[in-house]
Amino acid sequence: MPYIEASARHRQLVAAARIALAREGVGNTSLRAVAAEAGVPLGTMQYVFPSKELLLRAVLEDVIEETAEVFRAAADLDGGLEHALRRGIAEFWSRLVEGRGNMQVIQHELTYHALRSAGMEGLARWQYERYGAVVADWCQQAAQRAGESCAVPFAQLARLVVANLDGLVMQYVSDPHPARSRQDLEAVTEMLVALAGVRGDGVVAADRAGRPYGKKR
């Protein structure tokens, strides 16, 4: 077997685990099954990931970072806060939800597994902190560039963006109905835009820590 650097082997096995998990679910996926999916000996699998828990942690971390990167890349920050919200939410849905229901199921399954597993609880908390921080950051940047203010703290707005998307995702994977889901997504977007109460008058807004932010005129 040709030599593969540790980082590349790690990525290979995590990618194989995501495929196996999407097919079999968390409970039915073993290290042996992932090794077979990756086309490597079980010993190689166990050298990189000595336990299933370590593998599941790596997969969840990988999924979290992928989702955070989509959030970060999706928002157009040059059109103001409302535009960033609309663009970011729509891009998230089209890139990570539609046609990827199995992976969304696995992500939620991994989150619940982390909450129930000793030593992994913090990973579930970090997941939502990560998403919230990314969304809050681009909301704040979009508002700053446009000289706008937000009616609520950016951290709160971000938490509600994530919470609403989470609920819509679960409805979508439980009962796939693309047209209806798009309508609901648009309705939720309007609610979040209304909550943001975007103003371009330079009123001081609040940053993620609740401190005053923006410029006065």
Rank of each mutant, 00 (worst) to 15 (best):
Q46W: 14
Y47T: 11
Y47Q: 04
V48C: 13
F49R: 15
P50W: 06
S51R: 01
K52L: 04
L54D: 06
L54N: 05
L56I: 02
R57N: 03
R57L: 14
A58Q: 02
A58C: 07
V59T: 11
L60C: 08
L60Q: 06
L60W: 11
E61G: 08
D62P: 12
V63N: 13
V63Y: 11
I64L: 14
I64Q: 15
I64K: 07
E65K: 14
E66K: 15
E66M: 14
T67D: 11
A68F: 10
F71K: 08
F71V: 03
F71W: 14
A73K: 05
A73W: 02
A74E: 02
D76M: 01
L77F: 15
G79L: 04
G79T: 00
G79N: 07
L81D: 03
E82T: 02
E82L: 11
A84V: 03
A84S: 01
L85H: 03
R86S: 02
R86M: 10
R86G: 02
R86W: 11
R87G: 05
G88Q: 13
G88I: 15
I89F: 10
I89E: 00
A90I: 10
A90D: 03
A90P: 05
W93E: 04
W93T: 12
L96T: 11
V97H: 01
E98K: 03
G99M: 00
G99E: 04
R100K: 02
R100G: 10
R100D: 15
R100M: 02
N102A: 15
N102K: 05
M103D: 14
Q104H: 12
I106W: 02
Q107G: 07
H108P: 06
H113F: 14
H113E: 15
H113C: 09
